[in-house]
Design a binder for these strands. Structure first.
Length: 408
RNA sequence: CGGAGAGUAGUUCAGAUGGCUAGAACGCACGGUUUGGGACCGUGAGGUCGCAGGUUCAAGUCCUGUCUCUCCGACCA
């Protein structure tokens, strides 16, 4: 892609109504545009990042047997009456049609996936079953805030699993936890598995995946010696107390919840009369689990974690382009040769061939946070300048070496 | 929803005590000079001053209402 063709460009100034780092940088770098509080458009570059995160999530969900579907975001009132969510969930967006029919916008999809599963589940042989989707969720938050971290509309992966007994559920639950940790690792995030309350629909403990950041909204207590971590909302310990697992002193921190896993028990199966016949011919309600990952929130948290005074520093796994290629004055043809050669190798390149000053091009590449910066300049002959975004020193290498490193 | 701050050009902002055709920088268009860290000169386009009322000879400025954004809190499947 040529930088001059990008419809949303890097801006010299940050938006005045942004305080949070991710809001400021994502807008300034041209990745998102705000429509209203908590609702954003993703530009071509921003969408590339979102899609990369999405695909990492998708790959891992598929690897543990998840089947991807796409459910509607517009729901009939009846489904939400069946669980009493219509009256109990205050963040549920409700709307009325011109003929006074009432609808809800999906803030989660148990009410849709459970009746859907009735068609699929008749026998214990149909279990386990795991369905997931990646789509917009709607929540009528009293206050949307922090850029894309807490939106009224946000992009989420939600998976729902169905099991013949608790033991099978626990097995899958553990698999999901492992997959989640792999996902966050690939995204460059260190997620702590945190004990938390299950919310209004279950008495059970749930697990949240927390990433430490001041931009988050949760307070957690964690142990640096072992993996113990608990949300302060249910904590029976406080900062400095001994870790119940290993005895080391607990630390307190601000964190953002990027994922969660819930044991739903049989609540939804009962609400929708979803049953199966077990091996003894007895009718049973399956055990359900639900598993969320805030895809758009992950993007925001990554920006919160990876930035400096010059802009964003994307982890290579989710950068919109692998390489920023800058053509300095007089080296346009050489830069174009590099551009063609890299693209032929399947490397995604953002070529800055604008008639701009060198400084302006460097600044744009830094702000957009592409992991590798290549510079073609008459000063260096056939050598190409190679620099990582998070490093200050550059080195001169030739094209085959550039390709070798990028393919590696 | 309670509290605080803010809405003026595409963007970031300036416009005390009301006063004439509302300004700057950046960006944009055209011409020229530049080209290793957000270059420079000239010319030009671009504004219902969030919106609606009101006070006044006169309102970006004062008053009332309203909408929106940001932050703190509450809330948060």
């Amino acid at each position: 892609m040529k930088l001059s063709k990008l419809p949303f460009k890097v801006s010299k100034t940050a938006p005045n109504n942004a305080d949070t780092i991710n809001h400021k940088l994502l807008v300034q770098a041209g990745f998102v545009r705000q429509l209203m509080a908590g609702v954003y458009t993703y530009t071509p570059t921003g969408l590339r990042v979102l899609r990369k995160i999405e695909n990492i999530v998708r790959e891992e969900m598929n690897s543990i047997g998840g089947q991807e579907i796409l459910m509607p975001a517009l729901h009939p009132k009846a489904n939400w009456l069946a669980t009493d969510g219509w009256n109990k969930i205050d963040v549920l967006f409700k709307l009325k049609s011109r003929t006074d029919k009432e609808y809800a916008l999906g803030q989660s999809h148990e009410e849709i996936v459970t009746p859907l599963a009735k068609e699929l589940i008749n026998s214990y042989k149909d279990l386990p079953l795991a369905l997931y989707q990646i789509q917009w969720k709607y929540r009528d938050e009293l206050r949307a805030k922090s850029g894309i971290l807490r939106g009224r509309e946000f992009f989420m992966k939600d998976m729902y699993s169905f099991h013949e007994n608790q033991k099978d559920f626990e097995k899958f639950y553990a698999n999901v936890k492992d997959a989640y940790l792999r996902i966050f690792k690939k995204l460059g995030l260190t997620a702590k598995v945190t004990e938390a309350s299950g919310g209004s629909f279950t008495e059970k403990i749930s697990y949240e995946f927390m990433v430490l950041t001041d931009a988050g909204e949760d307070d957690i207590l964690y142990c640096n010696e072992c993996n113990y971590c608990v949300n302060t909302e249910i904590a029976k310990v406080k900062e400095g107390d001994r870790c119940p697992k290993c005895g080391a002193p607990l630390k307190a921190g601000r964190a953002s919840e990027v994922g969660n896993v819930f044991d739903l028990g049989q609540k939804f199966a009962k609400d929708f009369d979803l049953t199966f016949v077990d091996a003894n011919g007895e009718k049973q309600y399956p055990i359900m689990g639900c598993y969320g990952i805030g895809v758009s929130r992950c993007m925001g948290v990554i920006v919160e974690k990876y930035n400096d005074e010059k802009g964003i520093i994307w982890p290579a796994s989710i950068a919109p382009f692998d390489v920023a290629l800058i053509a300095l004055n007089g080296a346009e043809d050489f830069a174009n040769d590099i551009y063609q050669a890299l693209q032929k190798e399947g490397i995604s390149v953002l070529l800055d061939e604008r008639n701009e000053s060198a400084g302006s091009k460097f600044a744009a590449a830094d702000m957009m946070g592409l992991p590798i910066r290549l510079v073609a300049s008459t000063r260096n002959g056939e050598q190409i300048e190679w620099k990582k975004r998070n490093q200050t020193d550059s080195e001169l290498i030739d094209l085959p070496e550039v390709i070798k490193r990028l393919k590696n």
